[in-house]
Design a protein around this nucleic acid. Sequence first.
DNA 1: CGCTTAATTGACACCAGTCAATACCCGTGG
DNA 2: CCACGGGTATTGACTGGTGTCAATTAAGCG
Lengths: 295, 295
Amino acid sequence: MNQLSSVTPVANGHAVTPSARAPEPARCSLPLGSAMICGGARNREDRAPDSKVLTGCAPGQDVWFIRSGILRLQRHAYDGHRQILSLFFPGEIVGFDRQFGGEISIEAATQSSLCRIDRRMFQTLVDEDSTLRADFFRQKQDQLERLHWLTWSLAALGPDERLCALLALSTRIMPYQPLSDGTGVLSVQLPRKDIADLLGTTVESISRIVHRLAGARIIEIIDPAHFRLLDLPGLAARGQIDSIFEKMTFGLANRRSQLEHVAAPAATDPVCLCGRQAGLLTPVNDRRAASDILV
Amino acid sequence: MNQLSSVTPVANGHAVTPSARAPEPARCSLPLGSAMICGGARNREDRAPDSKVLTGCAPGQDVWFIRSGILRLQRHAYDGHRQILSLFFPGEIVGFDRQFGGEISIEAATQSSLCRIDRRMFQTLVDEDSTLRADFFRQKQDQLERLHWLTWSLAALGPDERLCALLALSTRIMPYQPLSDGTGVLSVQLPRKDIADLLGTTVESISRIVHRLAGARIIEIIDPAHFRLLDLPGLAARGQIDSIFEKMTFGLANRRSQLEHVAAPAATDPVCLCGRQAGLLTPVNDRRAASDILV
DNA sequence: CGCTTAATTGACACCAGTCAATACCCGTGG
DNA sequence: CCACGGGTATTGACTGGTGTCAATTAAGCG
């Protein structure tokens, strides 16, 4: 237990790139297809948890690139019931699709850092750059697959199985510290309420299930947001995602590590690469000009 | 009751284009974006209910265009439980996306008529023709929206509300004969089991709900597959789709009527139009050559 | 130290799934 | 014409899980 507390600090800070929290990194370049998204400080926006990113009402002239944090796509029923339809993770683009109805919206689930992209600019890029298009397609496919899973599990699985699946998946999308004995410590960044609304259940049930899993020696509760997963394969099996685990998490983990590679050595050189085609990357020193290519 | 029986014949025949059942129409041209899909008889395939169209295992080198009928996207749990994730309707393209996992598959839910399209050919067309791409995008958007609805309703709505929503939506995707008094007769083409597996419930519950609705004078049961909807707006409201009803059914009804216009006057002239860009439609008399453009 | 918020635990009712039996429809074949 | 059989729909009785409501505890914060 005490040895675990030495690991937990990973949980602090926000989503994926702790370095982004540093005061004004001022410039960054983010990979997307063969293009680089160059967001100057003026194109970046930090969002606090529960703040709105896109609502159905607002025209939403912008597309958003997620630098860090987790966004949630949600819809409310007449009685106020909220259901989370999907989560969006670092490296993904949101807001390009058709305007949602008035009842659907995207909000920040955790502290997030976004990068604003002009809609028409992005449209143009997608039309011109087939590599970007392919990459964007792949994102859509990933998101679709996640939605398929959620839909299926809501109807075919029990709440406990759904939570097991989520915990297993979380090892790839949230801070997870593997230990030498095969177990690992997971930092759950999603509020309990969000987990409940995503899995179509209640916070009370989540709490009961968590403690039930702890009783069955499948997990160990460090604190309400940190669990030690004693049997990750077992979790995946209970959630019936063992056969698709790799496939579902591949794209996610990929984009995440890509972002980390970019964000990590950010303290070295102010040069920002921008290009629209593979092999045609253009080094740009003036960050204002660079950020204008892809607002 | 007797006046209703004079209406029900609409229910017979299969899905949407009864004329397609005629012996060997041999040629047809179907609109998709600015292109026309010209399926000669050898590219067409009729599928019986429950026959497989795409499985995760099979490489599936082909893309399918739905001429008539309803296809279902489904997945099985370990215990055999089946969940239908989505339905596909006439005018839509399936099979272009990433290969599914082994557990997911597409089958015919009703008697269906499909049109086989070579994958690479379609890929090329999508890359070249931005209008087709836009149309294809719109299809994907529609499908995504339906999936969003299903996901949301599985968690936020009760089984009865889900059925109400499905009935309301069905007036746009299944034979529906409006009557002068504002009511109308709906022919449900989906087997009871499919309805249950789509809405995440059981056939027993479906039966109970149907009779409950009849008791509440919201519908009238003509026979297990034909209902007289006494209060369509009420149904939509119960299903909480009243505010998005038009939006959700627009694309579907659109494609359906498009297909009917094409299929209806099929007995006139053997000329088959094929073209890749708007305004560049090329009349082709040799149907073999025509069908080769887009196999 | 008292406030607010989140997490937990308990008691309870009710809905919906399960299982089993029956009714119904629609072929076939006698 | 009726008897038979297979599939589907319906109905009933029962039970278990899960939501709901309420109370308690724990934790963060001024």
